[in-house]
Write a protein that binds this DNA or RNA. Structure first.
Lengths: 179, 179, 179, 179
DNA sequence: TTTT
DNA sequence: TTTT
């Protein structure tokens, strides 16, 4: 339960394809960059000038799977989540803070493109999940979710077992899109 | 007008008294730190553990004046605004980003304490504005709003006319704040 | 899952004590009347005139239990739910429609009174549930939730066990309600 | 100012073309029927069954003009407004109540179709505004907005001048779409 | 740093 | 980096 309200509602477009990762237990975690546009009247010139705000989104669970599967660069989407600020260490050892919109079981996601939305038949080449970049220990804004105590492995992994001979962890609902 | 939706809704309590500043044209700008609480069940222990999220709020215009006048440390408040991320320079010359909830003419604010709420009988003693701590020029997370082009003066000023030779607009949070 | 968004967010005060009922399986259902206030400037007189809007709320599940237990006439509360319009038959046989804000597992409720909120020390005496007014069979706006097919009994019952010779649980607001 | 919060957020599709009317002073008022879809799992059958909720929307001002001009049956739209319940008289003399989502200057509207949104080039034949139905005094759910005191005329009129050979009511912004 |  |  919450003793407060922390809610974010966004409608915007993805700046790139979603990045999907997996927690050690095989749960999907998806990162999105979402642009919301606003234009305002410049007080000097009287002209309307466009302004884009970029939001960092992190999704968990089933919603993450759907997002990873159906959203693409340019997709328009409705997102409901909560604000969360994470602390991380810069390479200079200093603390940095990153604020994200977290979409978990309490959040919501709606695809707003006519295509895909409920159809998604055009995904033919099913997106192959942005191939596992070799981890080169860059100092990252990537959240380290799903780490239980006593777990030493780094951040996200490929699904349970990772890239070995995995029979295939996720992606159950290939056919019927659950929304 | 907006070509997208960017909305944040929060209910929480102030961590400190609001900080009021003024733009060169005498418009109030208020900064708040707002805590929203949530508890979740720890998967290990099965216990409910409380979790506090801190939000940085920036208010403008009339809403800022009301907030500056009636809100205090501990006040419970409803806030509706939008997400905005500002870029600033760390002392090391590197870019930093701070995400804030901006409450402007399109936002909303509701005081949720029985006291004050609509009464504000305590405004007599006009809140004395947390006195300007001597500032030690660290490069700060304080937004530089209300700066028109061709304006060289620093950020916020005291209200219209201000008190004399104010060498110093504000600046606070002396050491490290998480944003 | 939803193929759309249907969300209502209210902060207001209860017009009366909540009315608690129970589905045949013992699940709590609570009805609230919630007032939200707004004032606007009269275009004729230039005066601010207050305007109260009344909302009919229906809560289910755990949230309903909490509401029934801790909320009282006058309580200030935050509610998040969805809009739903029910059709019912007037005594004249004509269709009537009542729009309610439904707060279920996907909704949220926050008590905003300092007292009670998280304390609820008054729950000992369990509030005696506004005693069952003898019902005079007018066909009413009371929703008939929780009715599974093949179930003939009337609407809500007393909680699991309860019933005995219960003359009639529901029906309330005898005369005029604004919906 | 408001002493409460009353907010509705919907994403759905129009059931018909918008109906545009005008207040005596020529301000646009638009009525929409908006469907939001949700499916839920039937507890008996375990199947997902779709459920459509219909919402009655009333828009005022510039937003109404845009809606009347660009929205059509089937359009997908984001709407932010407030709940309002109106009382009206049935033909039997009895009170009826209708709850609407009011979108005024404080509300928001976003067209979510790729087409139209910002383009709307398909409106060529500018939709001729559902021609003024002969007023046959049907008992109506139509709101009677914009009635100042001392005004006896019925409900909405065509813009200044009314239904005669109206040269054209409104629609100023033919070229640049203000969003 | 708040609140319960 | 998106979208119109």
């Amino acid at each position: 339960m919450a003793r407060g309200v922390n809610k974010v509602i966004l409608i915007g477009n993805l700046g790139q394809d979603p990045e999907t990762r997996y927690t050690p237990n095989g749960n999907a975690v998806v990162n999105l960059n979402l642009a919301t546009d606003e234009s305002y009247k410049d007080r000097q010139t009287g002209q309307m000038v466009p302004k884009t705000e970029w939001h960092r989104i992190v999704m968990f669970g089933k919603i993450a799977e759907v997002a990873g599967q159906y959203l693409r660069k340019g997709s328009k989407v409705y997102i409901e989540g909560k604000l969360q600020t994470r602390k991380w260490q810069g390479q200079d050892g200093q603390d940095r803070y990153t604020t994200e919109v977290v979409v978990d079981i309490n959040g919501q996601m709606q695809m707003l493109d006519s295509r895909g939305a409920g159809g998604g038949m055009d995904q033919g080449a099913p997106q192959g999940r942005p191939q596992p970049q070799p981890q080169q220990n860059q100092q990252p804004p990537q959240g380290n979710y799903g780490q239980q105590s006593g777990q030493q492995g780094g951040g996200y992994n490929q699904p349970a077992g990772g890239q070995g001979n995995m029979p295939e962890p996720v992606d159950d609902f290939d056919d019927d899109i659950p929304f």
